[in-house]
Amino acid sequence: MFSFSNIRYGYTDKLSLNNINLSIKKNEFVCLLGPNGSGKSTLFKLLNGLIYPSDGQYTFNDQQINAHFFKNSVNAKKFHQQVGFVFQNSDVQLFNTTVYDEIAFGPRQMGFPEPEVNKRVIDCLTLLNINKLENRVPYHLSGGEKKLVAIASVLSLNPDVLVLDEPLTGLTAQAQENIISIMQGLHNAGKTIIMSTHNFTQIKDYVTRFIEFSENHTIVLDAPTKLVLTNSDLMVHLASM
C-alpha cells in the first residue's frame, strides 16, 4: 500500500529522515518507536503529503505521491479521505466553533445528507465517550479532551488508513485502553493502522509489526511482533525506551 524507497528529508540542511526504506501492506497494524527527535512525526507528515521527500520515492497504491499528484484536487481529496491523520499536537488540529461541527466537518464535505452526518457524529462521540463535549468550544477543552475530539474528527471520515502520532499521550488509563480497543476494532474491520508511541509494553499485544527509529534518523529495527515477542533481549530494549 505504502512504499518508501531511499527517502531523505531535512527541514533545514540537517537531515530528519535518512535513507528510509519501508513498505506497509493493507491491514497491517504498525507501531513506530524511537527516541525524541528521531523522525517519527516527520515520517508521518511525509506519509500524509504535508511535506515531500528531498530525495527518494514515495508511492501509495503504486501511485507516486508528490507535489504534482496533489495539484489535481480530485487526487488530493480522495487521498485525504483514504488516509486519516491525527497530529501529535491536537491543539492545531481543531478549527471549528463546536465539537459537533468539528466532527461533522469531514462528512459534510463528503456530501452526506444531514441525518447521516448526525449519525456519524453521534457514533464517534459515543465511541470515544465524549458525548458530553458535543456543544463545547474545542478551543477551551483540556489537552486530553482535545486529543479525543481530534481522533473523533478523523474517524468520522472513515479512512482506510489511520495514522496516529502518539495517540495515547496525555490520556487517562481508561481513555488509553478505549483508544487501543478502537484501533483494534478498526484493524479487525480490515483497516490499516500506523501509530507511534513511547510505551512499547502497552501495545505490544495488539500491533502486528514494530519499526524502531534511531537517533541518526534511520530505521534500525523492522520486525513482525511475533518475532519481537520471542526475543527477550529485544523486548527489554524496547520496553526501556
Partner: peptide, 24 residues
C-alpha cells in the same frame, strides 16, 4: 489476541468507504 473488549463499532466505520470526490 488478549483482552478483546466488546466494542460497538458502528457499521459505517467497519466497512470501506466508497467515496469519489467531484472535480472542482
Amino acid at each position: 489476541m488478549k483482552n478483546q473488549k466488546y466494542l460497538n463499532m458502528p457499521d459505517w466505520l467497519s466497512s470501506p468507504e466508497n467515496y469519489s470526490p467531484v472535480k472542482q
